[in-house]
Design a protein around this nucleic acid. Structure first.
Lengths: 229, 229, 229, 229
DNA sequence: TATGAATGAGATTTCATTCAT
DNA sequence: GATGAATGAAATCTCATTCAT
């Protein structure tokens, strides 16, 4: 994953004539982000957004064409740029060192995600909400996982299984467990932004350790212990 | 948890005068459940529900007072029971055999949830959607996690830690990981109902095994092995 | 004015097959009377009436055909029977003694009205409300003042003017003042049923005295006094 | 009372940003006033108002928030001012000439009210209707009779009694009679707007004369005359 | 006779969007 | 570019009334 980890940096690309985001646009986006995260897209009216942003209702349509245009402006940078980039980064790491251990692999994977979640809570709340509420938006999020990436991920898993680093479970199930663990952290952060009792570093440690142990091939002594009891 | 594992069984408690759910009410609930699960609560109109249910629009309001009343009738039975019974199971398992292994404990927990998810996909889809979309509904779901239940869960974890069955991590983190793992399965089922490639039994095996290994105390040999490599 | 001064006595004539008013009908009428007087006809729903009456909604239509049927049952006895009777009584009194003084005449007039108002507060509240809100009901109330009665009243006023008992003002204005004075009392009673600080007898005295003095021909000394100052 | 005698003049205070009433708002208010006066508030739909006003239905809600908002805009200026200014007049009359006769005093009072009624027939019809129909609106009208104002009125009456200008009756009864006389005229004007056979001046004369004679202390000669006859 | 579930026409209200200024 | 009044389609909801039980 590269340096671009904040949404603001992406607005320039999609808004404004000369790659610049207007003060007005920023006000509207900030207001909408707050409100969407708090109440959900459907529950927020354009009048409300305009009021909180301190602009006229018409100004919203001047700048974003649609109510949906605001949502796009919030989701696009993450869905179209950051997440794909992140997935590519993951893949690159795997490709770079084919004989990497599961631990190193997972730690790298988790660390990036945790940082990202911490930095983009509000936007992720909106994306998460849309993901579960709108089939189209869900497709958009899922669509960014290109088949190529999936293929590469599958290859990585097979390689790790071959070297005895990964349990011999269906790849589909392994992926689900990895996503669940990271996703669960995401959900917690998004829903309780205030309760950050652990440092990012600690979280990375726990999640990685949990995943590594959960997905490592079962050792003989562990099995015998269980059998013995 | 035990006997009550289908939503229909709960409707009786909250609807109808003598604990019975009317044919009309069932029609409306079925239609609404389908539509909500498919398009999301906000996207479905009462007219549409009435049409699919084969009743007049007024009949909806006669039976459920509100559009929101339908949603309540769908969510209530699950929301009011899923977590409490889940933790009941946990408590029961602990009471039944205080020196039980983490494995048996988690297997019981996971098995119940997997069955429940499989049986109540549509309703859970609606609840999941509302949970992320509507602060009020989220509060309703979370509000039912009474402090008493949390205390019980905490006690159970402490006991397992004391007997060396559970890793010495913050309880909060352990809970999050358990919820993540089961929740991830829930999300997958809810979003891709068709793709059931694994049997319930297999899923229970994988999830349990993953959790048990992920949450077991780290063995010295494992650590030294890792360090050695 | 005869003895029939309470509404209940009239229900028999318009309801029930054998001139009897059912227990159910009484319940409905009582509930409706309360509610109409409190919130106004339009603001009260049939569901509400049924609830307060402790009957099913259908029962109302069984007994009164219409929602409007209830209103009719409340208004009819007064509008169709009592008020006309009262007006005829008034006329009779005038006819019986053509050379009566204004005082005796007005005292008789006022006394009957005051008693009537005191006894039928609630129903009068409903009638008053309808009078100002519904052109049709207003016509019904006004229609009960037959031209014949008006003619007789005019004759009475002319006679009193001829004998120097009544000011030489337009009859129309004199009637308005009489109605105003009595109507003002009606309004006060209807709107503040609780605040009955004066006895009927006292009220009759004040109203009569006020009317007699207000409508007596002006004496010379009074005029000269004013001029002198 | 003085200058502000038309409702339009009051709208400015409660509507529009810079104390101005929009052309659209005036159209809506005019249409609503006509319809409410003609059929009563409950019988008029917003669609009907919009049609007669020549605007879209949404425009009503854009400008008045509620259907009830229109009613408020019609009632407020009058309700907030009619009684206060009425009693201001009373107070002013007393301050201007403490030794004024009852006659001059009542003439001033009546003249103001008669003018007001003549000019605001339609609005008063709506208010009158609501007053008798809706407990809430009634409370609003009555609620504006502040204790302070009542105190002033009472003091004025006591002063007039002390100077032998006013009959020694309960203040409450005197007020009722004054209100009845003026209110009766109001009702007549509101219900039969067309039948204006008398000029304002004549009406003022009759009502004042009636009140003055009705409320003047009874002269001994008058009493003896009556007794003698 | 009494019931109360079902009805559906119609009422109010919301809201994204347009457009003249 | 910004405004905000106006729009009208569509949504939710109310309510008197019917009718099978």
């Amino acid at each position: 994953m590269s340096e671009i980890e904040t949404i603001q940096a992406y607005y320039a690309a999609s808004l404004g004539k000369d790659g610049r985001i207007t003060r007005t646009q920023r006000q509207i986006l900030a207001a909408a982000l707050d409100l969407f995260a708090e109440k959900g897209y459907e529950e927020v009216g354009t009048r409300e957004i305009a009021e909180r942003a301190g602009v006229a209702e018409g100004t919203i349509f001047h700048n974003f064409v649609n109510k949906n245009g605001i949502l796009d402006a919030i989701m696009q940078p993450i869905v179209k740029n950051i997440l794909p980039t992140m997935l590519n980064t993951l893949d690159q790491a795997v490709l770079d060192s084919p004989n990497q251990t599961l631990e190193a692999f997972i730690v790298a994977l988790v660390r990036d995600r945790v940082k990202f979640v911490t930095r983009n809570r509000a936007s992720l709340a909106v994306i998460l909400s849309q993901f579960f509420n709108n089939a189209e938006d869900r497709a958009a999020v899922l669509g960014m996982v290109s088949p190529a990436i999936l293929t590469q991920a599958t290859e990585a898993m097979e390689r790790l299984k071959a070297t005895g680093e990964l349990v011999e479970w269906p790849n589909h199930m392994i992926l689900q467990l990895v996503f669940s663990t990271i996703g669960g952290y995401l959900v917690e952060q998004v829903l309780y932004p205030q309760a950050a009792t652990l440092s990012d570093q600690q979280v990375v440690h726990y999640l990685s350790d949990f995943l590594v142990n959960g997905l490592s091939p079962r050792r003989i002594p562990l099995q015998s212990d269980n059998t013995a009891s």
